[in-house]
Amino acid sequence: MAVVVALSLSILAGLGLAVVYARGGQAQLEGMLLALSLLGIGVGLVIWAKQFLPNEEAEEARKPLESDPQDAAAFTAELERGEEAIGSRRLLLGLITGGLGALGLALVFPIRSLGPRPGRGLFQTGMADGRRLVTAEKEPVRLEDVPVDGLLTVWPEGHEEEADSSTLLIRVGDESLFREPVVLPWTVGPVVAYSKLCTHTGCPVGLYQAEEHLLLCPCHQSTFEVLAGARPVFGPATRALPQLPLGVDDQGFLVAKGDFEGPVSAGFWDRSR
């Protein structure tokens, strides 16, 4: 009885699915009908097996897995005979090993084509002396555009696509608040610029708690103290966010005065080299 119900339901659901699809489709209905059609068959089969198929317990012998000693010995002997025949030619053996080794080495090189040598790229960003800082809308920024106790994300003009160049402009209440190790000549009034990429795993450090002047990374909760050179005060990050030398050009727009004070984003083994 239950089998009949389950299988009939499955037939209905299957047909229903075809109708729903033909009439334009609807994700929830499709999923539900597909599920009903499959579950109907599944329930039907299980009940069928439990009620109408033989359920007696069977026994099967389990023979030892290892071969009988004679076979094993014959196999080993065969193996050894061949090995001796091959092994007697020492020179050839050496040469073939060398040949295969060289081939293996040669085959590694095509992998090199997958990407460029990791040169100085990790040490540099798109920031350079005199380059204007622009917003996501590619607008240059003046000091007044940076909201008090707020953030502005900027990029070097013409290098907006470079993921490692995103920079935070932060304006604090007063420039006298800055402490060591903020490089004061690199600030412009109450505005300081840091790399936006967390020094832990490179997530954008996007949350700012203005009252405490703390920058928070939403990925792993590393916290950086803006007034003290963005040094890490909590979480797994070990290094401060690199500071960007900031200046103003003759038209009053904020510009970079050079690249960041050190490599941005996550660390790597020869970062300090």
């Binding site: 994700a27 929830q28 209905l29 499709e30 999923g31 539900m32 597909l34 599920a35 009903l36 059609s37 499959l38 579950l39 109907g40 068959i41 599944g42 329930v43 039907g44 089969l45 299980v46 069928w48 097996a49």
Partner: peptide, 17 residues
């Protein structure tokens, strides 16, 4: 085979709902 259909059915229900 019943278990196969049950597993697939539950995945379909999850996928739809």
């Amino acid at each position: 085979s019943g278990l196969f259909f049950l597993t697939t059915g539950i995945l379909a229900a999850l996928g739809g709902l």
